[in-house]
């Protein structure tokens, strides 16, 4: 069975079991190259576990994850990252005692084998990439500031910048606008839209205003299962979605 050429990611019937609690329950999802996909769902729907599973932090007890047709569900995390999948975490986690530029540098490193670290300075190709990303995320003026001293919104952008700097084909952004005000949220949406085409992106969020600004297809999860998929308008109109969000039992 050969996958369609433009199909980048295929999550196929994945189940993740936390001591009897099924965080993912036979969940499937496919993503095409260059696509932005928003995944929404109430708390505990399994959105973060989905990300964890794709990047290999959590191992599925059933099902497969295919990336460009290759089963990655048993590969070690750094191998998965090496194939071109990168995730931004929910909790802001920049490397606090490193400068903004060094944070991006670690993400942008082209040759990540450890024995190549015995040298000084940044290779020119990477420096160029870092400069471009600094502009893109609006932190060009703060390249030598320690990342731990950035404002909350700036940290989120730096993290998105780090994910982009890896030049990964598939970016997973887990709540990129958590704790942001409306203006910052709008800027973040613009940033993410500007990345589509170069990258395929899965965004997890539950801020509907933000999701609308992304203008992308939406997958709704509920209790570890696939609920529905469609445009933001279709999702809004769907009775089942309203039900799970309002917390009524079926």
């Amino acid at each position: 069975m050969s996958p369609l050429p433009d199909r980048l990611l295929e999550v196929d019937g994945v189940t993740v079991d936390y001591d009897g609690f099924k965080a993912l329950d036979g969940f499937s999802l496919t993503l095409d190259a260059g696509e932005i996909r928003v995944v929404i769902g109430p708390n505990g729907a399994g959105k973060s576990t989905l990300c964890d599973t794709i990047i290999g932090r959590v191992r599925p007890s059933a099902g497969r994850v295919l990336f460009r047709g290759q089963d990655i569900s048993k590969l070690p995390e750094h191998r998965i990252a090496g194939l071109g999948i990168c995730r931004k975490f929910q909790a802001p986690g920049v490397l606090a005692s490193l400068s903004v530029a060094d944070n991006l540098g670690i993400a942008a490193a082209i040759d990540k084998r450890w024995w190549r670290s015995f040298g000084f300075g940044t290779p020119p190709a990477e420096a160029e990439r870092i400069a471009v990303i600094l502009e893109r995320i609006g932190l060009a003026g703060r390249r030598d500031v320690l990342a731990g001293t950035l404002a909350h919104g700036e940290k989120q952008w730096l993290e998105i910048g780090m994910v982009v700097a890896t030049e990964a084909e598939l970016l997973l952004l887990d709540e990129p606008t958590a704790g942001m005000g409306p203006a910052e949220t709008t800027r973040t949406a613009e940033l993410i839209r500007s990345l589509a085409g170069d990258h395929s992106i899965i965004v997890i969020d539950h801020d509907m205003a933000f999701v609308e600004q992304l203008a992308a297809r939406v997958t709704v999860m509920h209790q570890g299962q696939f609920l529905m998929q469609g445009s933001i308008a279709e999702v809004r109109a769907d009775a089942r979605v309203a039900e799970v969000y309002l917390g009524r039992a079926k």
Partner: peptide
């Protein structure tokens, strides 16, 4: 060297460094 930067990065956030593709 870059090694020193990597070492401090691992100290600050080992998982983060790993997910960025480093060992």
């Amino acid at each position: 060297s870059r090694f020193g930067t990597m070492l401090r990065a691992v100290r600050d956030g080992e998982n983060r460094v790993r997910f960025l593709g480093h060992d």
